[in-house]
């Protein structure tokens, strides 16, 4: 298990959206620190600002005010190309929709981003196969999305992000389109990524089933963090890992 350090620090970030003439303040001076090697869950009702927070922390949505420091880099002071490079080298994403290319097999889906990292075909294939193995899909690697179940698709999406070996891993509602069993598998994998890869995993969800599996749970409402709890006995993967 990697030692925990602060991986992401957000300082008084604010964000408002305009819809027509109505201005909605989604986040108003929110500060937060996220640790490496831990699965942090942000839960809360829809519209509470949790996805916006994830977008700001991951360099996808520029905040109106405030500062985000990730892996020692002031994210929003990077230029467009710098931000792109930062995401390429350090970030992994999983979204609610699996967003897999219909034409590609599971293996090709996972290899695709590795090409942009500059990996050669053989190296990319090796990494992709390892990542698929880690999400327990090695035997399904030659199937296309149409031939995979929802849970399998989400696991391919996780492998796609994981193969990049990111230090920061963001998941937005990763289980909301899945049945209980698949959801359980997905959260277990995310947990394992935090533990065995030492990655900072931030998961945003309103799915109450996930609460018991997270190392840390932040409850949000109306753009503010209401509670911040650690969950020392979270998740079965931990137990499995500590007693081999």
């Amino acid at each position: 298990m990697s030692a925990m350090t602060t991986a992401i620090r957000a300082d008084r970030v604010a964000k408002a959206f305009l819809s027509g003439k109505v201005r909605t303040q989604v986040l108003d001076g929110l500060s937060i620190e996220l640790m490496s090697a831990e699965l942090t869950l942000i839960s809360g009702p829809s519209g509470c600002g949790k996805s916006t927070l994830l977008a700001i922390l991951s360099g996808l949505e520029r905040p109106d005010a405030g500062r985000v420091e990730a892996l020692g880099e002031r994210v929003w002071e990077l230029d467009r190309a710098g931000l792109q490079r930062f995401r390429l080298q350090h970030l992994g994403f999983v979204f609610q929709g699996f967003n897999l290319f219909p034409a590609l097999t599971a293996l090709e889906q996972v290899m695709l981003p590795l090409g942009y990292l500059g990996l050669g075909h053989a190296a990319a294939r090796q990494r992709a196969e390892a990542a698929l193995d880690e999400v327990d899909l090695a035997h399904r690697r030659h199937l296309r999305p149409a031939e995979l179940s929802g849970g399998e698709k989400q696991r391919v999406a996780i492998a796609r992000a994981l193969a990049k070996q990111p230090q920061l891993f963001f998941a937005d509602e990763p289980t909301s389109a899945l049945d209980a069993r698949s959801g359980q598998t997905v959260i277990d994998i995310l947990h394992r990524i935090a533990r065995s890869h030492g990655a900072t995993v931030l998961c945003v969800s309103h799915d109450p089933r996930l609460v018991t599996h997270a190392d840390r749970v932040l409850r949000m409402e109306d753009g503010r963090i209401l509670s911040d709890q650690r969950n020392p006995a979270a998740g079965p993967p931990l137990a499995e890992e500590s007693s081999p």
Binding site: S58, L60, A81, Q84, R85, R87, L88, Q89, L91, G92, F93, F95, G97, N99, L100, F101, L112, P113, Y116, L117, A157, R160, A161, K164
Partner: peptide
């Protein structure tokens, strides 16, 4: 039709030019 897939690829670091 593939815009969400392209967006995901972009999030993972593939540039607009790519």
């Amino acid at each position: 039709g593939s815009v969400t897939e392209y967006a995901t690829l972009n999030a993972l670091g593939a540039s607009y030019a790519a």
